[in-house]
Computed example of a mutant assay.
Amino acid sequence: MLNVVVVTDGPYGERAYENIKEKFDTEFVELEKPESMFMDEIDIPLYELNKIKEANILITYTQHPDLTLDIVDLVNKYVDHIIVAAWSGEGFKNQLESYENVTCPYIMCELEENGNEVFDSFTSKIGKPKVDITLENGKIAIIDVIRSSPCGSTKFVSDYLSEKYFGSDDLENVPIEAGLKLQHYPCRAAKMRLFTDEECKKEMASGLHRDAFEEALNK
């Protein structure tokens, strides 16, 4: 079974851990945020480091850039794929993605298959929202979440729409309301990086959910 490790040095990552562990064998590793800004003074405890090395998929929510880079440098040869959820600046992103098995998404709910068997196994269930809608006599009967955003917002939106539109033939407004309802979910992606446009990220997440419901209805 796919082994996922979520690592953090601060307030982010726990919600993703709670959602991802429903699909995969997942561990949550908390590291102390380094006080120093110099990499040679950063020390990762051996126990935590060995646990991280056992991951097939590693997701880092570490905010200290040198700690993030240190983790990637130390474990990239051991894990199949690393997803860096918290990063700042295109230069740092390019530096991280110089490792072939590292991905730095703009937002976590845009993750899709990339041809790597292990990564695709993960993103078949976690990443860019994907839902399936069953109609009976032209009315909504069931909404299933096929692929959830890591934070759980897809289930949040799906549960709301399942209750509101059960037995309804008002299909036209479902995708629009999916995007609007996403705005009510406390998305924290923008807060993980400096100099980012939080509204832009929320609009992007809303659009991804709107498109997911529209695609499901078109099927």
Rank of each mutant, 00 (worst) to 15 (best):
N94Y: 09
P105K: 09
S88V: 11
I107L: 13
N76L: 00
N76E: 05
L111A: 05
Y99G: 07
H81L: 00
D70S: 12
I107P: 11
F92I: 13
K93M: 02
C109V: 11
E97M: 13
Y106I: 14
D80I: 02
H81F: 10
V75M: 03
E90H: 06
N101Q: 10
T103E: 08
E110F: 00
I83P: 00
N94A: 11
G89H: 09
F92W: 10
V79T: 10
F92P: 03
E90F: 06
S88Q: 08
N76R: 09
S88A: 04
N94S: 14
K77E: 14
V75A: 02
W87T: 08
L111R: 13
M108E: 09
L74F: 01
I107M: 09
G91V: 09
E90L: 11
A86Q: 02
D73A: 07
E110N: 11
V79K: 06
A85N: 08
H81Y: 14
A86T: 15
V75Y: 08
E112H: 04
E97G: 05
L96F: 08
W87Q: 05
N94D: 14
A85T: 02
G91S: 06
P105E: 03
I82Q: 05
Y99H: 15
E110T: 15
E90M: 08
D70K: 15
W87L: 02
I83T: 04
V72I: 14
Q95G: 00
L74G: 00
V75C: 04
E112N: 11
E90S: 07
Q95Y: 10
M108H: 07
H81Q: 00
